[in-house]
């Protein structure tokens, strides 16, 4: 099958790749652009480890085709920090030990950042339901939820 040329923007940078129409955006990010921060935990949209933003909307990149990225803006975990300054969520996840193995962390950070952008003051229940699509098998979520709630608080106080 002949490949399709795709031009898109990832974390603010213009990029191009050739992809098979069956390849997912996750495959393209990882295998063609060497952005391996997004992980494949299931490939069926159930684990959230592949979470990215597509024109600002939170999506599972395993459920988006590589060709669908044409002309869009993609945001991945690699673009969360501003240069050498970590996003407050990233710092808080380290401070709170909100990760054990860390495989779920990129997806959870992308998802939590998207939450705080639209709801700077979420309740615990709102955080839990927003992150219900991001599986973590190690932590029992306790420290993750606390880290997100506390980051929200810090960010509110900072404005």
């Amino acid at each position: 099958m002949s490949k399709i040329h795709v031009s898109t923007t990832v974390n603010g940078d213009a990029v191009e790749y050739l992809c098979d129409p069956r390849e997912t955006l996750l495959d393209c990010l990882r295998d063609k652009l060497s952005l391996t921060g997004a992980k494949e935990g299931c490939g069926t949209g159930d684990c959230g480890a592949c979470s990215v933003t597509l024109d600002g909307r939170l999506v599972c990149s395993c459920l988006v085709l590589g060709v669908e990225a044409e002309g869009k803006e993609i945001g991945t975990v690699e673009g969360i920090a501003e240069g050498d300054v970590l996003h407050p969520l990233q710092q808080k996840f380290i401070d709170y030990a909100a990760l054990q193995c860390g495989i779920c962390t990129p997806g959870i950070l992308v998802a939590a950042k998207a939450l705080l952008e639209q709801n700077p003051d979420p309740t615990e229940e709102e955080v839990r339901f927003w992150l219900a699509g991001n599986l973590c098998r190690c932590t029992g979520y306790d420290k993750i939820i606390r880290a997100v709630m506390d980051t929200a608080k810090d960010m509110r106080e900072a404005v």
Binding site: R30, D31, S34, L35, T36, G37, A38, K39, E40, T76, V77, E78, I80, A81, L86, Q90, Q91, F93, I94, D95, A97, L99, G102, I103, T105, P106, L109
Partner: peptide, 23 residues
């Protein structure tokens, strides 16, 4: 004591290399 883990930065930036991240 409770210091930050040494591999924390790698794991919150997507830099840490897991099984499927090798080429």
């Amino acid at each position: 004591t409770r210091p930050n883990r040494p591999d924390g930065l790698d794991k919150v930036t997507g830099r840490a290399k897991f099984g499927a991240d090798a080429y």
